[in-house]
Each structure stands twice: as structure tokens, then as C-alpha cells.
Nucleic acid binder design. Structure first.
Length: 358
DNA sequence: AACTTTTACAACCGCATCATT
DNA sequence: AAATGATGCGGTTGTAAAAGT
């Protein structure tokens, strides 16, 4: 199909719009409405390409555009939708009232994408990418604590480091440990106090407690955590490992397991037909949370559970929002969005027995 | 204070798709 | 059915502001 250039570019202005140009465009559209972009510049007295006018209007001047920083809820929605839709920015924008595809795309590239990379998450696949991380430093700081060394990670990874790093199951375990490090430690403390009555006795034997890690399938993205949206416990450095008993730790890990062990991986949940066609359909009201500011927010779990999927299991999601917006908090949150899949076949006992710990 | 580098985001470009003739 | 026009979309670039040296 042939295609003529959208406009004669000779003599047309490019670059940033001036307030005068904006005013002309707004005034014209207020009178005549948007559309007919080819003729609009001439009729509005603008030395601009119609395409440029349309972009300026849709991305900046439109009255229903929400300016300012993305909220925590919006960021969650973007990440979750991107994990399904990929770079379908317009489809994602359709779920974020007042946000343009261009704005979302920019925010993704300048904020979210970088943060995911820092946290070892491939921003394309949303899968853990341990090769993006300084593994040894992460694991050391995660497990060894400030004083007593719980695990000798150089032993864990050393000797067979290369082999270990090539083991995808170990990579996932390491990802889990990374996320343990990232989140807010106070949240775990609170969680422990509320659920396990932990932190009251000396840890007798630290290592066997890890045996329950083989039940630790995924970072819990459910609403079951009473204090944290996602994997607060799983994403937190142990507050004081020396005070944990094995039973306590077993209980904790068992609880963590119950978070989401029944969930399937996201890939398995999404049928091939689940694409932007879905996203372009209007969502029923119950699929939104209404936040304190009155905005509606997309509830991914609702969508998943109400969408005919090949799997009967809904994808649980973190929809209990933390009303925080600092960069660090968001970073913690992003890392918690990881979905970990440590299969049953990964027996930590076997793993441990093959490596020496101090 | 001056210069350089990085970051954030508006805007552009080319292609795809849909509608109209 | 083919040509053409209009609009939408996603990748990329340009540039001002902020941060770093």
C-alpha cells in the first residue's frame, strides 16, 4: 500500500512547542474538536506537521492527562501488564487512566527497567537474571549477617562456583535470597511477631532449617500476608538469625510456602490468546481497587481469576498497596514482584550436603 | 564556578493498520 | 482489488535540567 508523507515538511517547525503554539492548538481543538490532523495546522495557524499536532495534543495538552509522578499503584499495574503484554504501551496505557503510552514508555525506560535490571530481573522476560548481579556480594550480605557467619557463601559457590551459577535452580534460589535482602526488614519482624511468635530463643542448628526451602516455590504474590503486599517475609533479611530456633524457622518457611505454593508460573497461566485484545476490552468495575485518592486501579488478580484461562488457578497478586513512593521503597517492591520457581525436585538438603558450610 | 556526565521526558520518525475512495 | 489517506504505535533521538567531578 502506498503511503504519502503526512505533510509537506518544508517550512514546518520542529522541536519543542512554545506556549503560543500550545494555546493555538488548544483553542482550535476546543472549537472544532480533535481530528483531521492533516488540515488542523493550517486551519489553526500553526507551522507544524499534523502529526506533531496530534502528538502534542494526545501526549501533553489533552485535558484528561494526569501529570506528575506515577503512583505506587500505577507502577504495579505497569509492571504486571508489561509482564503479560510486553511493550504494548498503548494497551498498558488503556489501563491507566490519564496516562499516555508515551509517558508510560518513558517511565518504563527511565525508572522501572533500570530498577528491574538492578534487582537482577530481566525487564523483557520478567525472569530472574542472576548474571546481572554481583552474586557473591548479594549472597554474602544476605546470609552472612553482620557478625556471625551463618553460611560460608564462598564455600557454597566456590569450588563449584561455575557449575553452581549454571544451575538454574540455584540461580532461582539465589534470586530468592536477593529478594530476601531487598525488602524492608521491619516488615518481616512484624510478620514474625504476629504469626510465629518468633525471635525468642537461640537458633540451635541453622543449616537444617533450610531444608524447608525446597518448599519455597515462589515469592508469594498473594494477599495472604497480613502486613506486606507481596513477599515481605521472603524478601527480607532475617532480622536476627541468632535468635531463631529451627522450629521457628521451619514454621516461618512453612508459612512462606503456604503463601503461594499452589500458584503456577505466570507463563503457564497465560494462554496464547491472552494479549492486547484482552487488554483492549473494558474491565468490569470489580477489577479495580479504589485508592485513597479516588483513582481506580487495575486489579490483576481479579482479571486473571475472571478471565477464562487454561489453568483454573488464578494468579495471585500483590494488591494490598503500600502507600509509599520513595525510590528505595519502590525498588524493594519491584524486587518483590519476582516470581520464583524452585521446583520440588530441588532438595536443599542434598544441595547442602554437597557443599561445606562453616 | 566551570565543565562533564547522567537523567528525564518531549518530540520525532518510520512503519503498521484501518478506513475510504 | 488496489490506491490513498488518516491515525496509531513503538523505537529512537534531542535537549534541558540535574547531578557529579
Amino acid at each position: 500500500m502506498g503511503r504519502a508523507p503526512c505533510c509537506d515538511k518544508n517550512g514546518l517547525k520542529k522541536g519543542p512547542w512554545t506556549p503560543e503554539e500550545d494555546h493555538k492548538l488548544i483553542s482550535y481543538i476546543q472549537l472544532h474538536g480533535p481530528g483531521n490532523w492533516r488540515n488542523l495546522p493550517k486551519n489553526a495557524g500553526l507551522q507544524r506537521c499534523g502529526k506533531s499536532c496530534r502528538l502534542r495534543w494526545t501526549n501533553y495538552l489533552r485535558p484528561d492527562i494526569k501529570r506528575g509522578r506515577f503512583s505506587f499503584e500505577e507502577e504495579e499495574t505497569i509492571i504486571q501488564l508489561h509482564s503479560i503484554l510486553g511493550n504494548k504501551w498503548s494497551a498498558i496505557a488503556a489501563r491507566l487512566p490519564g496516562r499516555t503510552d508515551n509517558e508510560i514508555k518513558n517511565y518504563w525506560n527511565t525508572h522501572i527497567r533500570k530498577r528491574l535490571l538492578r534487582n537482577g530481573i530481566d525487564p523483557v522476560t520478567h525472569a530472574p537474571r542472576l548474571d546481572l548481579l554481583d552474586l557473591s556480594a548479594i549472597l554474602r550480605s544476605t546470609l552472612c549477617g553482620s557478625s556471625a557467619s551463618l553460611l560460608n557463601m564462598s564455600s557454597l559457590l566456590g569450588g563449584s562456583t561455575h557449575q553452581a551459577l549454571l544451575n538454574p535452580e540455584l540461580l532461582r534460589l539465589a534470586s530468592t535470597l536477593l529478594s530476601l535482602k531487598q525488602d524492608n526488614p521491619e516488615m518481616l519482624l512484624q510478620y514474625l511477631q504476629q504469626n510465629q511468635q518468633l525471635c525468642n530463643s537461640q537458633m540451635q542448628n541453622q543449616i537444617p532449617a533450610m531444608s524447608n526451602l525446597n518448599q519455597f516455590h515462589q515469592a508469594p504474590l498473594s494477599d495472604q500476608s497480613p502486613t506486606c503486599t507481596t513477599s515481605a517475609a521472603a524478601c527480607t533479611s532475617l532480622p536476627d538469625q541468632s535468635q531463631l530456633t529451627q522450629a521457628d524457622l521451619d514454621g516461618l518457611l512453612s508459612n512462606l510456602t503456604n503463601f503461594n505454593s499452589q500458584n503456577l508460573s505466570q507463563e503457564n497461566l497465560i494462554p496464547p490468546s491472552f494479549d492486547e485484545n484482552f487488554a483492549s476490552q473494558p474491565l468490569p468495575n470489580q477489577m479495580y481497587n479504589r485508592s485513597s485518592n479516588g483513582n481506580q486501579h487495575f486489579r490483576f488478580d481479579s482479571v486473571m481469576s475472571s478471565t477464562p484461562l487454561s489453568s483454573p488457578t488464578p494468579l495471585n497478586s500483590s494488591s494490598t498497596f503500600i502507600n509509599s513512593s520513595t525510590e528505595d521503597e519502590r525498588e524493594s517492591y519491584c524486587s518483590s514482584l519476582l516470581k520464583f520457581e524452585i521446583p520440588e525436585s530441588l532438595d536443599i538438603n542434598d544441595f547442602i550436603s554437597e557443599h561445606s558450610f562453616n
